[in-house]
Amino acid sequence: MPEFIKTRITADGRDGYPVEPNRYRLVVARACPWANRTVIVRRLLGLEDVISMGMCGPTHDERSWTFDLDPGGVDPVLRIPRIQEAYFARFPGYEHGITVPAIVDVPTGQVVTNDYAQITLDFSLEWKAFHRDGAPDLYPAALRAEIDEVNELVYKDINSGVYRCGFATSQEVYDKGYDRLFARLDWLTDRLATQRYLVGDTITEADIRLFTTLVRFDSVYHGHFKVNRNKLSELPVLWAYARDLFHTPGFGDTIDFPQIKEHYYKVHTNINPTQIVPQGPDLANWHDPHGREALGGSPFGEGTPPAPPKPAEAVPAGHTA
């Protein structure tokens, strides 16, 4: 039984799941940074009309994420209260993490994949026939080796690095994770001081993977995970870079800060047993000008911005910065 379900949805259907409009449902939670990536990529590429999206609430118990935001606590398409049921439909008694993002085959009700790293790449490569007009190339062939290299470093030291610190049960593990995290953030500062985006002069998969950690840094990771050498807002280059992306359609308008905070502070009772959710920080500064246009580049290259989110998928009023 796999820890991560590596089955892929491909144009040729070689794993038994061909690309097919309106067959699959992407299950996410706004609180989760790994799921947030898939929400952004789906939106940037204009796949909303061919891949539906189910939204879990910000909190869950030890069993799985639940659809408590939906009427009756049941997903209106899958007709289940917990994503766990889609996992069990394919792998009875699935013993590993019941995670989001996950893609479910609607006709069978079975989970297809929860391989978050591959899902977004396949959205770019395998679903190309269904991209919107003007969709950006988030994984350009000429830059893939460099994107992969940057992604690996960011994954090890930053995406996973904040969790390594937050869930550390020894001082030694915490100290090593802390040092790796901030060394990599300093490396990113040097890299981004003279270029607008991580790889090339347009937004790529690399920027999306970094953004979903950076946008949670001050609200959650700095305090909750004890990564407190600096706030993101105290690192001028990275702070401006994160705001640049936040202001870009498809990025900031996917962020629900109240759900993010509720998830981390209420679910991780081993770290925060009182489940008290802090009121701060003030989020108004996310709207400050970033000035990164002076570095050149263009968010979508020869493409265009995505349309506004559909009303049913929009972040509730007052939940963004």
Rank of each mutant, 00 (worst) to 15 (best):
F211Y: 15
S219C: 14
R209H: 08
A242W: 14
W187C: 04
W239P: 04
D207T: 05
V199W: 03
T213W: 15
A206C: 09
T189Q: 09
Y241A: 01
Q195I: 06
G223E: 11
K226Q: 08
K231I: 09
T189N: 00
L192Y: 01
E234T: 11
A240D: 15
L232T: 06
V237N: 09
N230Q: 15
L245P: 13
V199E: 04
T189K: 02
L214H: 03
L192P: 06
T212A: 07
Y241L: 13
N228D: 14
H224F: 02
T212I: 08
Q195T: 01
I208W: 07
L198C: 02
L238C: 10
W239H: 12
V215S: 12
I203W: 05
A193H: 03
S219D: 15
A193D: 07
Y197N: 02
D244P: 12
I208F: 08
G200K: 02
Y241K: 09
D218I: 10
R209E: 03
D190Q: 14
R243N: 11
L192H: 03
T213N: 15
K231E: 15
F211M: 12
F225Q: 04
W239K: 07
I208K: 01
L235P: 01
A193Y: 07
V199D: 01
V227L: 11
Y221N: 01
F217W: 05
L188N: 06
Q195N: 09
V199I: 09
G223K: 06
S233V: 08
N230C: 15
G200D: 04
R191F: 12
E234S: 15
A242D: 04
K226V: 05
L214K: 00
D201G: 05
W239F: 08
H222I: 09
P236C: 12
V220P: 05
L188K: 06
R229S: 12
V199F: 02
Y241T: 09
L188C: 09
K226T: 12
D201M: 09
S233C: 10
G200S: 14
L210C: 01
E205S: 08
F225T: 00
V227Q: 06
D218K: 03
F217H: 03
W187Y: 15
R191D: 09
V215P: 14
L210Y: 06
S233P: 06
Y197V: 02
Q195K: 08
K231C: 06
P236V: 13
H222M: 03
L192T: 00
F217V: 05
R196K: 03
G223S: 08
L198Q: 07
N230V: 14
S219E: 07
F246Q: 04
G200V: 07
L232Y: 07
D190A: 12
F211P: 12
T202L: 00
D207V: 02
D201P: 02
R243G: 10
A193F: 04
T204G: 00
T202C: 09
F225A: 04
D190G: 07
F225R: 03
F246G: 09
T213C: 14
V227G: 10
W187G: 13
V220G: 12
D190F: 07
T212M: 00
E205A: 11
I203S: 08
K231D: 13
R191A: 12
T202A: 07
N230H: 15
D207P: 14
F225G: 02
V199Q: 08
T189D: 10
